[in-house]
Design a protein around this nucleic acid. Structure first.
Lengths: 346, 346
DNA sequence: CGGAAGCACTCCCGGGAGGTGAGTGCCAAG
DNA sequence: CTTGGCACTCACCTCCCGGGAGTGCTTCCG
C-alpha cells in the first residue's frame, strides 16, 4: 500500500502540476489541459502514460472512468514535502494581521483574535487552543469567599493567563487568605505541575499534625482549586462559515460544523498532532483518523509559544485542496508574531 | 399595510391550522389537505374562499400562482399571540436540561452551558450574552504587576462574574496593593456604575493635593482598569450547525453563519430586543431589521437574571417555522432555572 | 346568501432522450 | 520513448412531456 516514490524528474513535475491545478480549480485534471500548461511541450498522450504510472503508484485517483485525475492523500503529502521553501505574505495580509494583533497584551484575547485572523487570511477555519498547561509558571492565586459555601478561585500564570472557578467550600476568608499567602510565597514561579505535586506531598506529610493551613489547603486541593481540569482549555474556533463554500454535501457539512462545535474534540486533535516540542509548522493530511467527519481535510498548525513556554496551539483547518504554500507561510508568520508581541510586552 | 385582523372564528381557526401544518411540513399548504385535517368538515372550496380573504388581509403568501399558501410574518405574529398558554416540557428535555446545568456555580460557565442546552432542546441556535453590566455589584478587585509595565487587573462581581485584563502601566506592586485596598474597602457592594462615577469624582477632587493613592487610581482609571468596554460582553453561540438543515440556499447559509460569528452583532441584537425589564419570554419575528441576512428568522429569548440583577440574556434563534410553543416553554423554563440555581448557590 | 361542486388553467417537478465534450486506454508508427 | 490516431465511456446540459397539486371562477343548492 505504500506507494513507490515517483523517482523520475518528469513524474515529479507532472504530479506537482496536477496537484496545483487541482487545488486552484477543484476539478479533476485531464491530460490535455496539463499538456497545454506544461513548460516542456509534452503531448497529452505522453502525459497520459505518466499519469497511468502515477495512478498505479497510488498518487492519483479517478472519480470515474472517463474523468480526469484527482490527487490522493499521498500526492498531497508528497507535494507538501516539495514546497517546504517559505514564500512571502502579501502586503495586505501582513497589514491585516498586524492591525488585528498589535496592542493586545492579554493572552486570552490574543488567542481569540488569532483564530479570527487565521480564518481571515486562510479563508478557512482558524483554531487556537490556550492550554492552561502544566508547564505554565504560577504567578499568583487569589481565594475569595463570595457567600455561604461559595469560594472564588483565581489562578494567574506568569504569562498572563487567568483561570477562575467557583467552588463550594466552607472556609472563612481568613483561612483562605492564609492559604493563598502560603501558596504565593512558596510557589510563585513554579510550574503548575511541580506546584501540585509538591503541594500534595506536603499535605500528606503534615496530615497527622494539626495544621490549620494544611487543612485549608487540603480542602482546596481536593475540590480541584488548582486542578487543570479537561475543560480548562480555552478553545477559539473562527471562520466555520468558510466551510460552506468548500463542502458540497449538506450532510457532511452539518457533521463538520457539529464537530467544530465540540471544543473537546478540537483540543484532542490539536494536542494529538501539535504537542511536539518542535517549532516548525506542521501539516497533517487526512484528519479522518482523529475526526471521522473530517476526512479529506488537513490541519496546518504550529505551537503558540512565548519564549520557551508553550501557551497552546494555533492552526488552520481546511480542505485538502487548500493553498498550502500560502497557509503555511501565514501560520508560521503568525506563530512568530505571537511570540514576538507577547514577549516584548513582558 | 397593517392587515385587518381576521375577526371571524373560522378565519382564526384556519389560519392557525395553516401555520401549524406549515411549521411541521415546511411546504406550502393547500386547501385540500387542510380540509381533510379540519375538524368541521369544510370543503376545499370553502377553505379556498377563506384563504383568499386571508391573503388579501396580508396573512398568507403564495410562492407562485398554483402553489399552496405560506404564512407571512404577520401570520406568525398573530399565531404567537394565540398560543400564549405555556405547555409542559417532556421528561427527556427536563432531564437533559437539569443534567447539563446542575452543579455549576460559575456564571460564565453557566452561560456557556446554557447556550448549548438551548441549542440542543430547540434544535436550533442557542445564544447567551453575559453582560458585565453597569448594574452588577462589585465584590473585589485585584491588581497584580506581572512584569515591566504590565499589570493584571481582575474584577469580580458579587454574582461571581470575573473580568480580567492586562494593562500597560508602570506602577509598583506596593502602589497597586494600596489602590486595590482602597477600592475594596470603599466600594465593595457598589454597582460598577456608581463606583466609577464616585471614583472619578474623588479623583478630580483630590487632584490638586499630592496623594499617592489617588495618583495610582487615576492612572488605573484612565487606562480603563474598571471600564466596561464594549468588547467585554461574553457571547456564547451554540448549534450553528442546526442551520444547515433549515436553510436551502448556500449563499444565505454562509451569510448567516458569518453573522453568528460576529459576536458584536449578536450583542446588539439581544440588547436591542431583550434589554427590557420585563421577565417574560419575548418573541421577535422577522430579524431583518437588525440582521439583514437573518430575514425570516425569529428570536425567542428572555433576560437572564439572578434575583433582581440582570446578568445577560438567553435566546434561541431559529427559522420562522420554529416550534414556538415548545421553544417558548423551554426558554422560559431555562430562564427560571438560571435564576433558581444561581440564587440558591449564593 | 353562504357553502359545495365542477371545471379549466397554471405551474412545479421528475423522468427520459438525445447531443456534447472532456477524458481515457490502447495501438501503431516515428 | 514519444506521439498521433481512434474508439469508447461517462457526466452533464437541454429539451420535452406527462402527472399532480393547487387555484380562481362559475354555478348550483338549501
Amino acid at each position: 500500500m505504500v506507494p513507490t516514490g515517483p523517482i523520475g524528474h518528469r513524474e515529479r513535475e507532472i504530479l506537482t502540476a496536477i496537484v496545483e491545478t487541482f487545488i486552484s480549480t477543484g476539478e479533476p485534471v485531464g491530460s490535455r489541459a496539463l499538456s497545454r500548461s506544461n513548460r516542456e511541450g509534452l503531448s497529452p498522450a505522453t502525459i497520459r502514460n505518466v499519469m497511468a504510472d502515477l495512478s498505479d503508484a497510488g498518487y492519483l485517483d479517478q472519480p470515474h472512468t472517463s474523468a480526469g485525475r484527482v490527487p490522493t492523500t499521498e500526492a498531497y503529502r508528497y507535494y507538501v514535502e516539495q514546497i517546504s521553501g517559505e514564500a512571502h505574505l502579501s502586503r495586505e495580509d501582513e497589514h491585516m494581521i498586524h492591525d488585528s494583533l498589535t496592542g493586545i497584551t492579554d493572552v486570552q484575547e490574543f488567542m481569540e483574535r488569532t483564530s479570527r485572523v487565521l480564518s481571515l487570511v486562510s479563508k478557512n477555519v482558524g483554531v487556537t487552543v490556550a492550554v492552561s498547561g502544566p508547564k505554565n509558571d504560577l504567578e499568583h492565586v487569589y481565594f475569595s469567599r463570595l457567600s455561604d459555601q461559595k469560594v472564588l478561585v483565581v489562578v494567574v500564570t506568569r504569562s498572563g493567563l487567568v483561570r477562575d472557578r467557583v467552588l463550594r467550600l466552607d472556609l472563612s476568608q481568613a483561612d483562605l487568605d492564609v492559604a493563598a499567602r502560603y501558596i504565593n510565597e512558596n510557589f510563585r514561579g513554579w510550574t503548575m505541575d511541580d506546584m501540585r505535586a509538591e503541594l500534595q506531598h506536603r499535605i500528606e506529610q503534615e496530615r497527622s499534625e494539626y495544621d490549620r493551613v494544611m487543612q485549608s489547603l487540603e480542602q482546596l486541593y481536593k475540590q480541584g482549586a488548582l486542578a487543570a481540569e479537561p475543560g480548562s482549555e480555552a478553545v477559539f474556533v473562527e471562520g466555520a462559515s468558510n466551510l460552506v463554500a468548500n463542502e458540497q454535501d449538506r450532510q457532511r457539512l452539518q457533521e463538520m460544523l457539529k464537530t467544530l462545535e465540540e471544543k473537546g474534540k478540537i483540543v484532542q486533535l490539536l494536542s494529538a498532532y501539535l504537542d511536539t516540542k518542535q517549532e516548525a509548522v506542521r501539516v497533517v493530511i487526512g484528519l479522518d483518523a482523529a475526526l471521522p467527519s473530517m476526512s479529506n481535510f488537513v490541519l496546518i498548525g504550529a505551537p503558540a509559544r512565548v519564549g520557551n513556554e508553550v501557551m497552546g496551539s494555533l492552526a488552520v483547518i481546511g480542505p485538502t485542496r487548500i493553498d498550502y504554500q500560502h497557509t503555511m507561510t501565514a501560520v508560521s508568520y503568525i506563530a512568530r508574531l505571537f511570540d514576538k508581541i507577547l514577549n516584548e510586552s513582558e
